[in-house]
Simulated scan of single mutants.
Amino acid sequence: MQCRFGDKIKFIPALLLVCCLLIPSLAMAGHGEAKPVKKGILLAAFGSSMPQAQASFDAIDAAVKKTFPGVPVYWSFSSAIIRDVLAKEGRIVDSPAMAMTKMMDAGFTHVAVQSLHTIPGEEYSGILETVKAFEGMPKGMSKVTVGKPLLYTNDDMLRTVDAIVANIPKDRKAKDAVVLMGHGTPHAANIYYPASQNYFSKVDPKIFVGTVEGSPSLDDVKVLLKNSKSKKVYLMPYMSVAGDHARNDMAGDEDDSWKSELTKEGYKCVPVLKGTAEFPQVVEIWVDHLKVAFKHLGDH
């Protein structure tokens, strides 16, 4: 049959239309059907090499699993130093990147990552950058969200202050001081520590906040203690776990520990070796942040 030139012109658009319709089908045939939605949770803590700190992690793990029944929960430590120490002891804990890789390989499409840090400092920023890289990666996750650390909003500050005050030992008298040891950081988020002092002062004028590696320092706390006229001091970690800093830098017997320094100045010191994650009211704040992150995962 003879085909005229005009027929060819009409045929070409029709051929292009057929090709356009076939291409998605071919792509689907090459890559298979879209993955079914599979949601998971990754908890990202700074970590601790102290066995006693496990109580804090267990409390968080139990609260998260109770709130999200049936949702797989993975763990990671953001501190490379802590992970190395644990590895030498034969205990392997994943970094956030490794945990995300394992979850990706396991077929998770939607992952809510909850920061278990106290402030939005270097560790939190690093987690944001790391886990977000998995979103949209070929064969990666469709959606990744990150829950805020303990202290982020004004409401977080108010709730945290109330939670810690509620967990001060009951035998503490009104005339006794309470000194909270935070970690401290060169990051701009260190501002949360002097801000915390302001919040605590409004609730109890004899609660003081210091840091190991930032500001306010122990020297700043000493000035406030002197003005308070208190003779007895309760030392408490302003950290999620009562780990190395709490047990050595705060409550240790070394000459430069906070307990030793304050004892030299005539104070009777009472260390309280419980991290904030051992307080249900504090864990509830992290869980509430995770609820928001999980909700934002959506279903697509």
Results as ranks from 00 to 15, higher is better:
235 L>A: 05
134 F>Q: 09
261 E>Q: 14
267 Y>M: 01
216 P>Q: 11
63 A>T: 11
170 K>I: 00
15 L>E: 06
231 K>S: 12
231 K>A: 09
291 K>L: 07
231 K>V: 11
72 P>H: 04
110 H>S: 00
163 A>T: 06
191 I>F: 13
18 V>P: 07
146 V>D: 07
156 D>L: 08
81 I>R: 12
299 D>E: 14
8 K>S: 03
143 K>C: 14
176 D>T: 12
75 W>R: 13
211 T>Q: 04
121 G>E: 02
184 G>P: 13
61 D>W: 03
193 Y>Q: 08
240 S>Y: 00
89 E>A: 14
139 K>G: 03
191 I>L: 13
51 P>E: 08
22 L>H: 02
117 H>F: 00
296 H>C: 11
184 G>Y: 02
59 A>R: 04
172 R>F: 01
178 V>Y: 00
67 T>C: 12
22 L>C: 13
265 E>H: 08
174 A>P: 10
165 V>E: 13
260 S>I: 01
274 K>R: 08
271 P>I: 04
37 V>C: 12
35 K>W: 14
125 S>Q: 04
36 P>Y: 07
249 D>A: 06
30 G>A: 10
286 W>D: 00
300 H>C: 09
162 D>V: 08
29 A>C: 03
132 K>C: 06
167 N>W: 11
105 D>T: 08
263 T>V: 10
290 L>W: 03
249 D>Q: 03
226 K>Y: 03
285 I>R: 03
224 L>T: 12
177 A>W: 10
62 A>T: 15
17 L>C: 06
107 G>P: 11
112 A>N: 01
236 M>P: 11
166 A>H: 06
245 H>C: 07
147 G>A: 15
211 T>A: 05
198 N>R: 14
67 T>Y: 09
174 A>L: 08
213 E>Y: 13
123 E>H: 10
205 P>Q: 12
69 P>F: 09
5 F>S: 10
300 H>K: 13
217 S>C: 05
14 A>W: 06
184 G>I: 12
19 C>I: 11
270 V>S: 00
26 L>I: 12
270 V>E: 12
258 W>A: 04
146 V>H: 09
252 G>Y: 11
97 A>H: 06
126 G>W: 06
183 H>P: 07
7 D>M: 08
204 D>L: 05
133 A>Q: 14
66 K>L: 04
170 K>L: 00
19 C>D: 00
146 V>I: 13
23 I>L: 15
262 L>D: 07
166 A>T: 06
16 L>R: 11
241 V>I: 15
80 A>Q: 14
175 K>V: 15
21 L>W: 09
225 L>Q: 13
243 G>F: 03
279 F>C: 15
184 G>A: 09
109 T>G: 05
23 I>Q: 10
140 G>F: 02
135 E>K: 02
185 T>G: 04
200 F>C: 05
116 L>I: 09
144 V>H: 01
88 K>Q: 14
239 M>K: 14
216 P>Y: 10
73 V>S: 05
149 P>H: 11
43 L>W: 02
66 K>C: 10
43 L>C: 04
155 D>S: 08
250 M>H: 07
228 S>D: 13
94 D>K: 01
186 P>T: 11
275 G>S: 00
149 P>C: 03
251 A>S: 11
38 K>V: 10
183 H>Y: 05
